[in-house]
């Protein structure tokens, strides 16, 4: 079935089985591999993208759910044209503090951090604990994720 979805600001036509998770549409069909597969069950956050501006688990969103809607991925928040000031601040803070270790979860972490800082520009530790708990990092870079969110908040 064909669907039209705006991906990172660009109207895109996809023709897939309607129940295909958005995660695999992005990765397999659109070659946007920054969004990661970690659990397939909304338990790890590696596949976090924004759907109409709100963080969602792309492994649980089906192709039919996104028809006519806006999807932003890590490639979108990185793109010169599509990056928001919040996304730029988040990524700069991540680099400044060398947050990443294996890095596999970090696109999801960044999408969640952008989501958080967009809605709460000066989050408390408690806000971070609530808004970021869905994103697992097995390298346990949490200490620096927290610091980087505060760092980004300073510059927004």
């Amino acid at each position: 079935m064909a669907f039209t979805v705006t991906i990172n600001g660009k109207k895109t036509s996809i023709d897939v089985d309607p129940e295909t998770p958005l995660l695999w549409v992005l990765r397999d069909d659109l070659k946007l591999t920054g969004t990661k597969f970690g659990c397939g069950a909304a338990l790890c956050g590696a596949c976090t993208v924004h759907l109409d501006g709100e963080a969602v688990r792309s492994c649980q969103i089906q192709a039919r759910d996104v028809d006519g809607r806006d999807v932003t991925t890590i490639e979108g928040v990185t793109g010169e044209a599509s990056a928001t000031p919040v996304a730029k601040a988040v990524q700069a803070a991540w680099i400044k503090l060398d947050v990443a270790q294996c890095g596999y979860c970090q696109p999801g972490q960044i999408m969640s951090a952008v989501g958080l800082l967009t809605q709460i520009p000066k989050p408390t530790d408690d806000d971070i604990d609530k808004a970021m708990d869905g994103n697992v990092c097995r390298c346990a870079t949490y200490h620096r994720i927290r610091a980087a969110i505060h760092e980004a908040a300073k510059t927004i």
Binding site: T78, W94, I95, Q106, I110
Partner: peptide, 10 residues
């Protein structure tokens, strides 16, 4: 590896 791991290109 920070930049590539932060922008999803790694």
């Amino acid at each position: 590896d920070s930049p590539a791991k932060v922008n999803g290109t790694a």
